[in-house]
Amino acid sequence: MGWALRFYRSTIGKKILMAVTGLIWVLFVIEHMAGNLLTLKGPEAINRYAALLKSSDEILWAFRIVLFVALVVHVDSMLKLTARNWTSRPARYAKVAHQTSSPASRTMRWGGVFLILWLVYHILHFTTGQVHPDFSHTDVYRNVTVAFQSGGKVALYGAAMVALALHLYHGAWSMFQTVGANHPHLEKPRRWVATAIAILIPLGFITVPLAIYFGIIG
């Protein structure tokens, strides 16, 4: 076990954990986004899908636990690395000129924190329903169509999607580098894949709230 501990203690080890857990979440959001799009096909489609997901408690919880653990590990590493990085340069420069780092890469931490807060809200909103005006445990379609009548909600989700876009723009590129999946001629495709993920996923997500708000569905 010594090797595992050493790995976890090292900066590279933690970073690799972030990449792997990040990847798990990327896969989840892809699946989730695709699922959400069923809402556009109407109540039956999305509700049947939701019911299907919940058909087996074992699978559902296994699935939730994986996500939860992944997020905890992701955030734990983030906190430890951030603490380290913030103390590794005690005296600041009077003048700093960033040359290549993207705004996305420099907002990973705060963007991430915003995402996690939003996520808590999001779950209370659509999964457990506490913050939902009238919540139904079976009718997902109704939950969303009701929720997104309000411009405020749409805006909030919009903001979350921007945060997600930024996070993925750097993250989905960065994770390859972190696990060492890089080579001069992999450079371009990597950037391309990451950009695609960063645009398509948030876009796909936000269409549903917008469609509802502008009365295209619901």
């Binding site: 900066t11 590279i12 933690k14 970073k15 690395l81 380290r84 990085n85 103390t87 590794s88 340069r89 960033h98 040359q99 290549t100 780092s101 890469s105 420099r106 990973m108 750097h170 590129w173 960065s174 580098q177 972190t178």
Partner: peptide, 10 residues
């Protein structure tokens, strides 16, 4: 106590 890499590329 060098920092970790977050792939900034600077």
């Amino acid at each position: 106590h060098f920092g970790g890499c977050t792939n900034y590329g600077e």
